[in-house]
């Protein structure tokens, strides 16, 4: 089975600090993969490297058959990586529907002039975008809120909207940065179902960062533990979570 994502000895330093060093991972298609580790271990930095926010100082990233090392955010999004953020980043003044439609930007195109002169092409593509965006919102039970301003949504719904927007770019790989942060156990339970649903319904490959061990052990197939920017352990979820080294460095007693 070919890997969807193959990362080889990836590294970056900020000044003298090696935030990520010699990071390797292989994620298979349709896998739900977890990235865990203590605060400041470099998890978010890995996401920023994968999505082109930072350029790696060493290593390479291969997505499917494409070597995407060194590409910028725009190019990487087009190649098929989408993400959510640790601190929610929505287009706060836009409607819920428009947030998703922005995600569709590169998949449904018409020119600026089509837009200004309201050509038939504009009408047709806008309609397609509306339908597509609504169907995505429906998956997350957000279609009823389509005209709400994004910033007026409750917190849990904002998290879901971020996932819907990411999926709108039609990615091959979805990165979720602490999706359960700030959620109560019930919401977390619901989120776990949503993530599973996304994986099955969209045949998606997912890499997620999470501190909530219930969620991690509940849905992740495999894990990588990061500590001080380096891989501490990798393997099947249950094996990793019971590894004495991991328990000592991260999970505590």
């Amino acid at each position: 089975m070919a890997a969807m994502l193959k990362v080889d000895s990836l590294g970056i330093s900020f000044g003298g600090l090696k935030a990520v060093d010699n990071f390797n991972v292989e994620i298979e298609k349709n896998e739900l993969y977890g990235l865990i580790g203590p605060n400041g271990a470099g998890k978010t930095t890995v996401f920023n490297l994968l999505t082109g926010v930072y350029q790696p100082t060493s290593g390479q990233i291969v997505l499917g058959d494409d070597n995407i090392t060194g590409l910028d955010c725009e190019a990487i999004s087009k190649k098929g990586i989408a993400r959510t953020f640790q601190n929610i980043r929505l287009f706060s003044q836009l409607s819920v529907l428009d947030n998703v439609k922005v995600g569709l930007h590169n998949r449904h195109e018409y020119s600026t002039l089509d837009g200004i002169f309201r050509t038939p092409k504009f009408r047709k593509i806008e309609r397609e975008m509306d339908e597509k965006a609504l169907s995505l919102l429906k998956v997350f039970d957000l279609d009823g809120f389509c005209n709400y301003k994004a910033s007026n949504l409750p917190y849990g719904q904002q998290r879901k909207l971020e996932i819907a927007r990411a999926l709108a770019t039609d990615p091959k790989l979805l990165l979720l940065d602490e999706p359960a942060a700030g959620m109560n156990p019930n919401e977390t339970e619901e989120l776990m179902n949503t993530i599973r649903l996304v994986r099955d319904k969209f045949d998606m490959t997912i890499l997620l960062i999470e501190h909530d061990m219930k969620l991690v052990s509940g849905i992740c197939d495999r894990l990588t533990v990061l500590n001080f920017g380096q891989v501490l352990k990798q393997g099947q979820t249950q094996d990793v979570l019971h590894d004495p080294e991991v328990v000592k460095a991260y999970l505590g007693d």
Binding site: S77, R83, S92, H108, T112, G115, E126
Partner: peptide, 23 residues
């Protein structure tokens, strides 16, 4: 009220998120 305007406003609201969806 078009695709271009939405992109401009999205970048205004959150540049990092807008770049992450390929703008």
């Amino acid at each position: 009220n078009s695709r271009t305007g939405r992109a401009v406003m999205a970048i205004r609201d959150n540049r990092i998120a807008a770049e992450s969806v390929g703008l």
